[in-house]
Design a protein around this nucleic acid. Sequence first.
DNA 1: CGAACTGTTGCATTGACTGCACTATTTTAT
DNA 2: ATAAAATAGTGCAGTCAATGCAACAGTTCG
Lengths: 225, 225
Amino acid sequence: MCRTYDGGVNASSYPSVPPDPLVEESDDAGDDRLGLRETKKRQTRLAMHRAAVELVAEHGFTPVTVEMIARRAGVSTRTFFNHWVTKDAAVLGVVPGESREIAASLRAELEVHGPRDALRHVLRDVLAGIPADPELRDLKKQVMSKEPRLHTISSGNLIEVQSELVEVLTEAMDGEDARMRAVIVVQVGFALTRSAFGFSMSTGMDLPSAYDRVIELYDAGLQDD
Amino acid sequence: MCRTYDGGVNASSYPSVPPDPLVEESDDAGDDRLGLRETKKRQTRLAMHRAAVELVAEHGFTPVTVEMIARRAGVSTRTFFNHWVTKDAAVLGVVPGESREIAASLRAELEVHGPRDALRHVLRDVLAGIPADPELRDLKKQVMSKEPRLHTISSGNLIEVQSELVEVLTEAMDGEDARMRAVIVVQVGFALTRSAFGFSMSTGMDLPSAYDRVIELYDAGLQDD
DNA sequence: CGAACTGTTGCATTGACTGCACTATTTTAT
DNA sequence: ATAAAATAGTGCAGTCAATGCAACAGTTCG
C-alpha cells in the first residue's frame, strides 16, 4: 500500500482504562465518571468508527474517502486523523496503545502456565475484549469478508504486539534457541488467532468460541494430516 | 523533473528463472530467448528494485520517495508505477503474479503427500526460489531488520496466495470442518515461514536452511512447552 | 474567576498513486 | 523489407491519504 503507516495496535483486557483497545461501547447516556471531555471524545470516536464501517459496507473500502467518513461523523478530516492513525484503523476500530499491557498480562500468565498456554490465554482474552456490538459486528463481518485487504492490515497492526510478546517469551524460555522458539510459538499463536478471526467472520460465531474451536481442531492432531 | 538518461542499469550476472516469484537476475548477455523487449523490461525492473533497496538501506523506508528511487534507476516515476503496485513492493521485489503457480504445485504435491507435508514442500520451494543475490541479500537483511513495517507488508502480500492455497487444501481434505482445518494448516504453515524469514534475517542463514531448522524445532515438540 | 489543558479545526504541504494521451521501439504478419 | 499491431516509457493533470502548525473554544482545576 502506500501512505504512511505506523501500525496502531489494538486490543487488551477491558473497559475502564483511558488507553483503550478498540472502540468502546459508550452509550449516550451512561459514563458519568468519565468527565465531559472524555465522554465527548469517545462519542466522536465511535461516531467515526460507525460511519467508517457503514460507508465501507455500502461502497467498499477504496471508494470511501476520509472526507466522507468525517462528514458523516460530523467532524473535520483533521479531527479524523487526530483519532485514527490511518483510514484502515478507523474501519477496524483500532486505537493505538496497548502492546505494553498485553505484554504485562503475558508475564502474569507465565507465572502459572507454560509459554504456549500462557500465550493462548492472553490471546483469548484479547479476543474476548473485542466489543461485540450487535449492530457493528454484523456490518464488520460483511466488510471483512468482502475486503481481504483489511485482513492484511489487521494482522499487520499486530506486529508491534508480536515483537513485544516475543521479548517476554524469550526471557521465559531458557536453552539454546530460546528466541527462535519464542518466535515460533508467537507466530503459531497468532496464526491460530487469525484462523479464529476468519472462522468467526464466516460463521458468525463469537470470537472466543471460534478461538476455542480452532484450538480444539489444532490440538486434535492437525499435525498428522 | 526526473529524467536522467544514463540507462543506469546494473544487471548482475545470474541465471534466470522464467516463473519469477521475485525479481529475477537477468544478464545483459544471455537471454536470447526472451526478446529484446522483455530483457529490457527486466533490466529496468531490476534497476528499480536495486535502487529501492539501496536507498532504503541508506535512509530508512519513509524518507525515501518514489521519485528518488525512480531517479536513481533512471526512469520516470510513472514508469515506476507501471512496474510496481506500491513503493513497498519495489523494496521487497514482489512482482505480482504467481499465486496460481504456487497453487498448482501444491496440487501436485498433494498427489504424493498429506496436506501438511505437501504445503511444507511447496513453501520450502518458494523460499528456495527467492534469489540469493549476494549483494542484495545483505542489504535486504539490513533493511528488513531495521524496518519492521516491511515484514508486515511482506506478509500482507502473501494473502492472495494464502486464500488460493486454502481453496486447494479444502478440496483435498474431506470431513466436517474441511475448510476450517485447511485454513489452520495454511495459517500455521505461513507462520513457520515467517519465522524462518526472521531467523534468516537475524542469523544470515539462507532461507531454505532456516526453514528446515524452524520445522525441526517446531516438530521437536514446541507444543509441550 | 482565571490559568492550564486539550480537543477541534482550517490551511498549507508533501507524497503515493491513477487515468489519459502520446511517442518510440520492438514484434509480427504480410 | 515494410506496414501494422503491441507495448514499454513518459509527461501531465488530478485525487486522496497523511502531517505540521497555529488559532480557537470548551473543560478542568486551583
